[in-house]
Computed example of a mutant assay.
Amino acid sequence: MSTDLDVVVAGGGRVGFQAASILTERGHRVTIIERDEATSSAIADEWLATVIEGDATDPSILDQADVEGADVVAALTGESGLNLAVCLAATELSPGIRTVARVDRAEATSYTEFVDAVVYPERAGAQLAANEIVGDDVQTLADVTGSLDVMLVRVEEGAPAAGKALSAVRFPTGTLVVSDDDGHQVARPDTTLTPGRRYVVAVEPDVADEVMNLMRG
């Protein structure tokens, strides 16, 4: 997808706000919809983008957020059913919009019929939620690996690990870079993390954000 997206985030709690902050730092334009007045006010005090107080399932609120002009709607509230409803409402208003829903892992299979992507941020962190929102730069195998995430991660130009050999990067304990950049060999200490290339990486949930920071910036 484009590197410069218009994103509507429904839910200004911990996950929604952190994901929105990461997206903004990457140059995307973000609007947050939050129904709780106190949370909306708190976000507005430190947020430079648009914050709309209201119910994100309400078509008038989605219209106010300009969902029809957005590239992605990411429903990241703590309620899976509400997140699905937001995505379905957004699709009604803008049939071509990319939809991302935060769900409980047990609900993921049934939800993928209705949304483009699902995220489990309790396990993977806001960094992975943000990556899922903007497209396919990070793909996970969360359905088959239990609490361990096995990901296909594209190294971003300018990231701390970009252009360095694995032996020179201080990945946190709980990280294993599995493949080299063409997928034909297991990664070795002298494997270079080349910007723009993808690597298979296994991470424990607690260190996922740190690994994403090293490889994606």
Rank of each mutant, 00 (worst) to 15 (best):
E210Y: 04
A44L: 10
M1W: 09
A74L: 10
A89C: 02
F114S: 12
T31S: 04
A38F: 11
H184I: 00
A65P: 10
D4Q: 12
V103S: 14
T109D: 14
P205T: 14
L128R: 03
T99R: 15
T24R: 14
A38W: 04
F114I: 02
S94H: 15
A70E: 09
G78M: 11
D136F: 04
F114A: 13
D190F: 02
M1P: 12
M212R: 08
T112M: 14
S94W: 04
R170I: 03
A106N: 11
D55Q: 07
R216F: 05
V100H: 12
D180V: 08
E210G: 06
Y199P: 02
A126Q: 01
A108T: 13
T39F: 00
P172L: 07
V73H: 09
T145S: 14
V211C: 05
V169P: 01
V9N: 01
L176I: 08
A19Q: 02
D181L: 08
E37A: 15
V86C: 11
E113W: 09
S167V: 07
G163T: 05
T57P: 02
T173C: 00
V134R: 01
G135V: 00
Q185E: 15
V186Q: 11
L141Y: 06
E156A: 15
V186H: 04
V200L: 15
G27T: 10
D4M: 12
